[in-house]
Amino acid sequence: MGKLLIFSAPSGAGKSTIVNYLLEQDLNLSFSISATSRPPRGTEQNGVEYYFLSPDEFREKIKNNEFLEYEEVYTDRYYGTLKSEIQRITDNGGNVIFDVDVVGGCHIKEHYGDKALSVFVEPPSIEALRYRLEKRGTDSAEVIQDRIAKAEYEITFAPRFDVIIHNENLEVAKAEVLAVVSKFLQE
């Protein structure tokens, strides 16, 4: 079976950029596509960005124990990782990379133990995180404040991860992550 790489971080910490960087390296990684009960946005396609399920389909899969982890973020708005998605990747000899929230990351690590490496990408500071979110220009001041409050909570989970990558300088963080991941995959 392949190995699993779990990446979690507050919004704006650089997690997705680092995950995309690793996917471009020659590490035999496949991205774990999450399931959601929200409708597709824009040009999103089923099986590409997400597996899109109705709330009833999602609940049926929960009842059938088909999820490794899931969360109801809002009423009838679920997100989760299907066990079949991990099976699909590992059956083909691949290693799985996850981009998940901190709670999901902790659940996956608990389930897979030493077969998984959990990495927390930490922003340099809350002030730097606020600056990055404001610079994106995609969220209102209220949404940014909510993300900052959530980030402060998420940072308290960092000690539960195998590795903490302090992302003050993206190039340095990428090099550190590549070294840690490469070592783990060779063990």
Rank of each mutant, 00 (worst) to 15 (best):
N46L: 06
G14L: 05
I18R: 03
S118I: 01
D101A: 11
G2H: 04
Q87K: 15
H111L: 09
I33F: 02
S30C: 05
F67A: 08
L4T: 03
L5N: 10
Y21T: 01
P55V: 10
E152T: 08
Y78E: 05
H166I: 07
Y153I: 15
I6G: 03
A141I: 13
V181D: 07
L23A: 06
Y131L: 08
H107K: 14
A158L: 03
A9N: 03
I144Q: 00
R88H: 07
S34F: 02
N20Y: 06
L23G: 07
Y112L: 08
R77K: 15
N92Y: 08
A149Q: 11
A116F: 09
V103D: 11
S32P: 00
F98Y: 13
V177Y: 02
V180C: 09
R88A: 12
T90C: 14
L4E: 08
Y153R: 14
D91Y: 05
H107I: 13
A9L: 02
I164M: 09
L29V: 02
N95W: 13
L53Q: 08
V19T: 10
C106D: 11
T81D: 00
Y70N: 05
E154S: 12
P124H: 06
V121L: 08
P123S: 03
V100Q: 05
Y112A: 02
N95P: 06
N20F: 03
S8L: 03
L5R: 11
L82Q: 14
H166N: 11
G113D: 09
E127Q: 14
E110W: 10
Y112T: 05
T138S: 12
S140K: 04
S16Q: 11
S54D: 06
S16P: 06
Y131H: 13
K109A: 12
E152Q: 14
K135H: 12
E176V: 00
C106N: 13
N167P: 06
I108P: 05
A158C: 02
E127P: 06
R136G: 09
D101G: 15
Y112C: 07
F67K: 00
